[in-house]
Design a protein around this nucleic acid. Sequence first.
RNA 1: UCCUCCUUAGCUCAGUUGGUUAGAGCAUCUGACUGUUAAUCAGAGGGUCGUCUGUUCAAAUCAGACAGGGGGAGCCA
Length: 480
Amino acid sequence: MFNKRIKIKALLQNDATDYEATVMGWVRTFRNNQFIALNDGSTNNNLQVMAALGLLDETTLKRITTGACIKATGKVIASLGKGQKVELQATSIEILGDSDAEKFPLQPKKHSLEFLREIAHLRFRTNTFGAIFRVRHSLAFAIHKFYNDRGFVYMHTPIITGSDAEGAGEMFQVTTLPLDGTAPKNEDGTINFKDDFFGRSTNLTVSGQLEGELAAMAFSDIYTFGPTFRAENSNTTRHLAEFWMIEPEVAFADLEDNMNLAEDFIKYIIGYAMEHNKEDLEFLAQRLVEEEKAKPQNERSEMDLIEKLEFVVKNDFERITYTEAIEILRESNHNKKKKFQYLVEGWGIDLQSEHERYLVEKHFKKPVILTDYPKDIKAFYMRQNDDGKTVAAMDILAPGIGEIVGGSQREERMDKLLKRMEEMHIPAEELDWYLDTRRFGACPHAGFGLGFERLVLFVTGMTNIRDVIPFPRFPKSAAF
RNA sequence: UCCUCCUUAGCUCAGUUGGUUAGAGCAUCUGACUGUUAAUCAGAGGGUCGUCUGUUCAAAUCAGACAGGGGGAGCCA
């Protein structure tokens, strides 16, 4: 067996000394021809591997470059230097993989996030991205743990869908038909999909919700967690063309149950990361502090990253209706002094980013759940309230991110649902399978979607969504 | 898609009212030193100033188009 190594995290956590150990990892820096800072990704902390003078010949010494992969065996001893408790006094060092120092782009110095985005395939080897993606992993694991512990069934909804009527956004088409203009056409000039792979037009999913509702009508409580795709030409720090979404769907639940679930859920997974990724979060918090030093005093955050996360976990989210939110915005000094680009005047408008930011960051200074939006600015499947104007929708707005969750109680009454679909020009025949949930044993139910990357943004304190997914997909970009 | 800012060495950036041979720090290479912590010290190499087209005696510098990137907006998660 090749691998009898100890992971660097485990080695550093152990206070014992004077034992033999083998480690493997990638060289971060090599100082003084003697001191190798070795990292294997288990933690941001490097192990200092000490190669005594004379241990290695000249040729091998030159091959220990930043980025090279090495195997080192030796004795773990109390460090003579000041920066670390223990170090490995090497008795043998083997180069597993060379790294040409003239070509390897990462240096032992600060790199801009913009530069690292261009070399996303190597950025895992930096402290910042090491921390981000270990936190991302923990959050993903915590999501499964949260729902599993509560008896939810993890449902795999399709990635390729035959439905194009969900209305959640522009879709990517899936086809094996030739793209050179020779694809079969109907008489009216549109493409005839009869001979396509699936015998019909298909797309990449924009949401697993509709299929999720079907499963909830059997298992009571389900969740999905998978990739979703939007072909929107969105060029922002919080949109991706390929992103991961968590969508629980719960039978026998109303809007309040839905809000409670979402709030518990968010608090749980953040708490999990705080417990299991303390070092990484502290590193990211420090990174943020350094970054904010460049900003003027009044633009710096009041709380550091850890304090902010603690605050979210320990305090109740603010819950207000859309109507109340409009009132707060309309009466705000900000609005009266015309500081909004879009002034808040009447009921019925969709809230702009600046309005959401004001509510979350200035007025309440905590996550806010907005409920009961006008039905005309929300999706067809949301349950209509008795006032005839609003629907039982809820959005959770997070400081610095904006909308992180969108959800609703679903319209379980067939007649009302059909009428709404007709008003919104959604073809009922396309969604006949979905309507079966209302035909056979319909019940009050609710659910929401949480954008995973937006959550990772919030927890890591990063500001560009392209930095919290390994290989971001966005307009004009699908490298790697 | 819209608004706005940016593009000079591998990276991060200087570069004056247009003017002769475009600079620095880090990285790299060579050497020195050897308990270093983004090691230090000395030296060297490294540039089609994003691309194209104009204006001008003269363009990194001015203008336009295009490309790429940042930030903001819209669409949303």
